[in-house]
């Protein structure tokens, strides 16, 4: 590379002294482009994008606090389990009382039986659900289910607000 630089330098100086502007420019261009360009600091592109308000890769939904996700998921699981337990209890009561016979109770029993068999197939969950529903039957259970559903909704709203806040702070 240095012999090449030396030759290029010689040619440029000769052409300049001879007044050959076109060739002198060509050699000067070769000389200057043979040298390394300015080094760019690490992370320059990221800083530019951040300053421009463009979201930087890697700071996406992972930036939302994990406890919010866990709380929302936990509320969904608990309220879903309780709702299923109460529904099973009501369905069993209604099936036994026979009040739905005229209104297509066979369908309800059939669905209940299907539900029973399905739940039994996962290892006795049906018996656990009956036991829970027996213990929880009553207005208190309904209130508990409503409370869990309400807390799920509140968790969802909080999650939505945090995500919106994260989005607006990235664009600031």
């Amino acid at each position: 590379m240095n012999r090449k630089l030396d030759k290029t330098l010689n040619r440029w100086l000769r052409f300049e002294r001879a007044g050959d502007g076109r060739r002198a420019e060509r050699e000067l261009h070769r000389l200057l482009t043979a040298l390394p360009p300015a080094s760019v600091p690490a992370g320059f592109a990221d800083r530019v994008l951040a300053a421009s308000g463009v979201p930087v890769r890697g700071r996406s939904r992972r930036g939302v606090r994990p406890w919010i996700w866990r709380t929302a998921f936990g509320c969904w699981v608990v309220s879903g389990f309780l709702a299923a337990a109460v529904a099973v209890g009501f369905a069993a009561d209604l099936a036994r009382s026979g009040q739905l016979v005229a209104l297509g109770s066979k369908l309800v029993v059939g669905l209940g039986r299907l539900g029973t068999e399905t739940l039994a197939a996962v290892g006795g969950l049906w018996r656990a659900a009956e036991a829970v529903s027996a213990a929880l039957s009553g207005p208190a259970t309904l209130l508990l289910v409503l409370a869990c559903a309400l807390s799920s909704l509140m968790a969802l709203r909080a999650l939505h607000s945090v995500m919106a806040l994260e989005g607006s702070s990235r664009h600031a």
């Binding site: 590379m1 012999r3 630089l5 030396d6 330098l9 040298l35 390394p36």
Partner: peptide
């Protein structure tokens, strides 16, 4: 704007560096 280390020898590297610095 100075040349890097990838040159023929230390002497020529120094010369290239000097030329780059001079330019």
């Amino acid at each position: 704007f100075l040349p890097g280390p990838a040159t023929d020898s230390p002497a020529t590297a120094l010369e290239a560096r000097d030329l780059g610095a001079a330019l």
